[in-house]
Structure formats: C-alpha cells, structure tokens
Nucleic acid binder design. Structure first.
Ligand SMILES: [Mn+2]
Ligand SMILES: [Mn+2]
Ligand SMILES: [Mn+2]
Ligand SMILES: [Mn+2]
Lengths: 146, 146
DNA sequence: CGCAAAGTTTAGCATTGGCTAAACCCTTTG
DNA sequence: CAAAGGGTTTAGCCAATGCTAAACTTTGCG
C-alpha cells in the first residue's frame, strides 16, 4: 500500500459541525418563509407573494419559485394569483420558529445589544442554535428577570 | 391606478436583516475554508485538499472546485497535486475568523452549554454575529472571569 | 527503474436560490 | 362591460455547492 493511509476517526467527528451547518442551511429558508407568511396572515389577514418578496428583499419571481418548493414539501398551499396559506405542518414550523426566534432575540437584548442589532443578528443566529443552547439562553433570561 | 399601491418604506427596513443573512452566507464558506486551511498548516505543516474535504465532510471534487473560487478571490494559492497555501489576505481572514470563532465558542461555554455543543453551534453562529454582538459576548466573558 | 495503487483532478450532472424580461391574468374604472 | 394597467407568473439565465465516475499524476516498493 503506497502512500499514507487515512484514519478517518478524528476527522469524521470534526466534520459533524459542518454537516450540521449544511443541514441548518437547507432548512433555514423554509423556516423564514413560513414564519414570515404566518406574520403576514396575523398582521394583514392574508399573505401575498409580493409582500413576502418585499420583506425578504428579493424579486417576486424568486418567491414564486421558492413557494413551489415549499408546496412540494407540504408546508404551504396556494393557487395562482391567490394569497398563500400554511398547512398544519407549516403552522407548526412557523410557531416553533417564532418561539426560538423570540428567545434568541430577547437573549441578545438581555446581553446588552441594541434593538436593531438584536433584530438583525437573531434572524441569522436562530437557525444555528441547538436545543441545548436555546435552553441555556432561556435560563439566562430567567435569571436576568429575577 | 387600479389595485392597491405599495409603500415600500417599512418593508425595506425589515428586509435589511434578510439581506445581511444572504451576505453572511456568501462569505461563510470562504471563512471556514481559510480557517481550516490555517489550522491544517499549523497542525501538520501543510494543508492538502483531501484533508480539507475530510474535515468538512464533503467530496474531494467539491473542495477542488471551491478552492478554485477561493484562488480567484485571492485567498489561496495552489498548484495541481500540491498542497494549499494562504495568501496574505487569506491569512488575515483566517486570523479574524479564528478570533471571532474563539470568542463565540468561549461565550457558549460560559453560558453553560457542553463542549460538544459549543463546538458545533459556534461553527454556524460565528458567521451571523455582528461586531456589536461580539463585543457584548466579550464583555460577558470578561465579567464572568472576574 | 518501473508499475500499480493511492491520491487528485476533470467531466458531467443536479439542486438551490438569485435575477430580468416577457407573458399573462385580474380588477378597477371609464 | 370592456380595456387598461398593475400585480403575478413564466421563461430563461447565472452562480454556488454538492455528488459520482472516469481520467490523470505521483509515489512507494519490488
Ligand atoms: Mn425566524
Ligand atoms: Mn431567520
Ligand atoms: Mn470559524
Ligand atoms: Mn464556521
């Protein structure tokens, strides 16, 4: 056997973090979409694709394409030229996302960050926070309030 | 003017968070690559593409393609079948990334999460932490140590 | 020294998530 | 009630990231 042989042990362990990140990224967009759609429904009574596009800061066509994927994934239902609805699964994801998002944002505020920064940073951080870390953040918040 | 007209004001502001996320994502992979390459050089004296692939948990071919982009971006230099080097700019990005990464990871540990979780979560969170939040984390660490 | 195995790159494919321009449909209003 | 005009979707393009299989180098050993 010429050349060095690889022992995959240590590296396989290390790669776990990056594999988690790639998994997080693949669900991230869906989470933001359903949360945003839920917000729009609660705020205005309906969620239109163009509202989603405006709030995300992307083109209308991008939203149309993404919603098609979310529909295939069973998270939303829609008909052409109509507003968007969440399925049961969609609402569940939206609610879970909201809960997590709120904790992360409140945590950043409690840490002493400005409202604007907390709002912006939490939008990205929320997708990479494990349950364990989320619990630690909630614990910190509870301690702070006492 | 038939149908409702849009007022872009409020939504443009809200979309800032999502635009930041998209920007973060576009630099994220580069940051992880150069940091990893720096680690390999420091640990083993050289960084080979296959080591990068193994640590990231992706195929060799993926790394080859990505390194080509990083080379175009002026972050690494390489020749076929040879190990990878960082440019000055690459080292700078790696060092900055390491600093940030260390603070985030230490912060999570100080918050009470396990080492394994701190290692995994910090790998994703680091890319979405603004300077302001990083300072708040550093402040928290400093207070904890006292 | 030469060759075969191991390591590396290339080729080719797929998906995601962006964009613009053009086509399409719905609704408001004349 | 019909057409204009705006909102929505489609078409077609691009870049980034991933994969597998095949081609190509390098190199350790016989
Ligand atoms: Mn959210
Ligand atoms: Mn988010
Ligand atoms: Mn890092
Ligand atoms: Mn990272």
């Amino acid at each position: 056997m010429p050349q060095r042989t690889k022992k995959p042990g240590a590296s396989r362990i290390r790669s776990a973090a990056f594999q988690r990140i790639r998994a997080d990224h693949s669900s991230e967009l869906a989470e933001d979409y359903v949360e945003l759609i839920a917000d729009l429904i609660d705020e205005k009574g309906e969620a239109r694709g163009s509202d989603v596009a405006m709030r995300l800061g992307v083109a209308n066509a991008t939203v149309v394409k993404t919603l098609k994927r979310l529909q295939d994934a069973g998270l939303v239902t829609q008909e052409p030229y109509r507003s968007i609805f969440l399925t049961g699964e969609g609402w569940k994801m939206a609610e879970d996302g909201r809960k997590k998002h709120k904790i992360v944002e409140a945590f950043l505020l409690a840490l002493g960050v400005s409202e604007k920064t907390a709002r912006i940073d939490s939008e990205g951080i929320e997708h990479h926070v494990s349950d364990e870390t989320l619990r630690a953040m909630a614990r910190f918040l509870a301690r702070k309030v006492m």
